[in-house]
């Protein structure tokens, strides 16, 4: 019997710092809800909007896999590993923070905001050497299908992380369906609607809703609107 959890968009934590408008699916910073700590190894799912030329000053991270998925605009990333790069919509950024890394993220444009998903996973190995990676994704390949962004496979499509997790995104026409099969026995799946609306095994999901599914090996995803976009995170489950 599948176990599910629905996180409606309006129930997320919210912090508006002026330069940063952030919604937190899970407890983060000053948003604390003991019922919303994680979904398996998925610990953070922040939906961030950063004002022009503003951003996060240099700060540290360790022992987390941090994935940034720009949705609009571009981010300038700098870190103490020597990387200075710009990531824009259609690209994906990964940091395996391991023993520790300092980085800053700024909106690369002065005249428009940048929006991105900031996702943190507990790693499957502690204290790895920090690494930064970035991949360019051909967005056209996600039309009416799920496109892999991340996997544990160093030679897989997209980029890789230190966790037995798979990320896919898809953009669908209305009434288009796909079946999703869980990639690893025991994993759960967390779905996050980026835009539009979907039905997932009959559950209505609207923009920015999140939906976790456990103990279900395969399920159906159907778009209810044109250009409906969804992120699918296949993730180990543990308390």
């Amino acid at each position: 019997m599948a176990k599910t959890i629905l996180h409606k968009a309006a129930t997320r934590g919210h912090a508006n710092h002026g330069w940063l408008d952030s919604h937190h699916t899970f407890s983060f910073a000053n948003y604390y809800n003991p019922e919303r700590m994680q979904f398996g190894a998925l610990r953070v799912l922040n939906d961030d909007i950063v004002a022009g030329s503003r951003g996060f000053d240099s700060h540290p991270h360790d022992n987390m896999e941090i994935i940034s998925i720009p949705l609009e605009g571009a981010l300038e990333h700098k870190d103490n590993l020597g990387n200075t790069v710009i990531t824009k919509a259609g690209e994906i950024q990964v940091m395996s923070t391991g023993t520790g890394v300092f980085h800053s993220e700024y909106n690369a444009n002065a005249d428009k905001h940048a929006s991105f998903l900031q996702i943190w996973l507990f790693p499957n190995q502690l204290n790895v050497a920090p690494r930064y990676d970035q991949a360019t994704i051909n967005i056209r390949e996600r039309k009416n299908s799920l496109q892999q962004l991340i996997s544990p496979d160093r030679n897989g499509e997209g980029t890789w992380i230190y966790q037995d997790a798979w990320f896919h995104m898809g953009r669908f026409d209305k009434n288009t369906s796909t079946e999703y099969a869980v990639r690893k026995q025991g994993n759960g799946v967390y779905l996050f609607v980026i835009s539009g609306a979907f039905s997932v095994n009959g559950q209505l999901l609207e923009s920015r809703d999140g939906y976790g599914i456990q103990d279900e090996q395969q399920f159906n995803i159907t778009a209810l609107e044109d250009n409906a976009e969804i992120l699918v995170i296949d993730i180990p489950m543990f308390s």
Partner: peptide, 15 residues
């Protein structure tokens, strides 16, 4: 402790 301070520290302590 995960994350290097920012973001999770307060949550970890409270939990």
């Amino acid at each position: 402790h995960y994350g290097g301070g920012s973001g999770l520290l307060k949550n970890e302590i409270l939990y």
